[in-house]
Design a protein around this nucleic acid. Structure first.
Lengths: 246, 246
DNA sequence: CGACAACCTGTGATTTCCCTGAGAAACGCA
DNA sequence: TGCGTTTCTCAGGGAAATCACAGGTTGTCG
């Protein structure tokens, strides 16, 4: 089921209306904290664990709908954790966290079963989007929730990554896509550059804040080009997206 | 829940009807005093602390609904305080205070969990508005409270920063917006130029007092232009806003 | 009714914020 | 490895916002 909160954000819920439960497993506290905060903000219920043993224990009584699992844990191998998790929760989808340079082929095999993975350092938009996808597809949440975001005549498909304006197909790069998704998931709301940076760029990004301006400019070129603009600047506050006709 | 006080101001309340509780943490006494005064005026219950240790202790038994936290504390790093706070109060939203020049300087990730920040020197109107936003979105206050201020045919949306009069969209600059918000949050009440200056301009503003007159004049041009005026001067006392038809 | 105080507002200087072109570096794929 | 694509830095230009100043207007009170 999806409901729309008073703030206009769409929340994933389980069939019985209770919040989705997610278990986060990582040995770096800063990562579990970051993820917990962000996922709680999605309206989900979060528990975290710092090693494999803790993960299995927590999984046993928390019965999460999804697990975020770092492949590098201090006490046991990622695959071992996965195996034991599967014994407890046969159908729960898992989102793997892996180092950028990790052996990709092993992961590729793992994701065959419907799981997914992101590489560190990740952006929160990416993690949240993939988790939403996993949960949606696993059937833990109501199937009717779909993957289309629509604002005015602008559409974005989270599954196929297809974006159209007025029926016309638009090609976006990965970063442009994530930025637009974030804007479209918060229509008519002013988002500050800091919020955008925190959400769309990876947590270790140390660069200039004006990348946001730059990518807003790219998006405008592709989405608003020659049309009634949908992306608006609120000087001194941030940016927002809204349907052209208003 | 929102109720309207005898003075006509709208207050945020917790679901059980008790006042919202806010913890203020800053090592400069003048700042905690300033904030405490202003936030108490909102009808909230305030406690303050001057360092990280005190903050954790106070948080433990005060159980605030929101925290205002200076990132520069004498005894420990802002992030450390944050981590310990989170252990005590996992879901409490935090409003960070940061120095203007320390900007960008690792505020990263902080707004991702729904938290927010303001830079010093701030205006009280800004702090109050952001705190209200955080509390509203955190669910500590009743979800029915929304982000719209309405006085007569004039509306102001705190999320989208949109202002309309008689359905017509009006563009305001950041300062104009904050001034109007302050007026609209105190309808039918005379606000002195000193009050307005203290509230809408940052606490270190050293300029001429007639900026208030100037910005009132700007607002009138945009809001009252050719219409029944809503902004009124009480000579020798201040200004007030009220619905046109009265 | 005159004088003073309070208030209003036009003008323009300064500052702040935002946009975008150009090119360097990193990445991805054949 | 080499080439096209993507990401990001840097810096200049330009527009918008803020504010000081000063002269004009309105209201108040003796």
């Amino acid at each position: 089921m999806t409901t729309t909160s008073p703030q206009g954000r769409t929340e994933l819920l389980r069939p019985d209306g209770s919040p989705v439960r997610v278990l986060v497993v990582d040995d770096e506290m800063s990562i579990t904290e970051l993820l917990s905060m962000a996922l709680r903000y999605e309206g989900w219920q979060i528990r975290s664990a710092g090693d494999g043993t803790g993960a299995i224990q927590t999984a046993r009584d928390f019965r999460p709908d999804a697990v975020v699992l770092d492949m590098m844990l201090p006490d046991m191998d990622g695959l071992t954790v996965l195996g034991r998790l599967r014994r407890e929760l046969p159908d729960v989808p898992v989102l793997f966290l892996t180092a950028k340079d990790a052996v990709e082929d092993r992961i590729a095999g793992l994701t065959a079963g419907g799981d997914d993975y992101v590489t560190k350092p990740f952006s929160l938009e990416e993690v949240v989007a993939r988790l939403r996808g996993l949960i949606r597809r696993s059937g833990a949440a109501d199937r009717r929730s779909d993957s289309m975001l629509v604002v005015g005549d602008l559409t974005l498909d989270e599954d196929s990554h297809e974006v159209t304006r007025a029926g016309e197909n638009i090609h976006l790069t990965a970063t442009e896509f994530e930025l637009l998704r974030f804007l479209m998931r918060n229509p008519r709301r002013v988002l500050s550059k800091a919020q955008i940076l925190d959400r769309v760029w990876s947590y270790d990004f140390g660069g200039q804040a004006n990348v946001v301006e730059l990518y807003i400019s790219y998006l405008r070129r592709k989405i608003d080009a020659g049309r009634e603009p949908m992306i608006h600047t609120r000087r001194g506050a941030g940016y927002l997206i809204k349907p052209a006709a208003s």
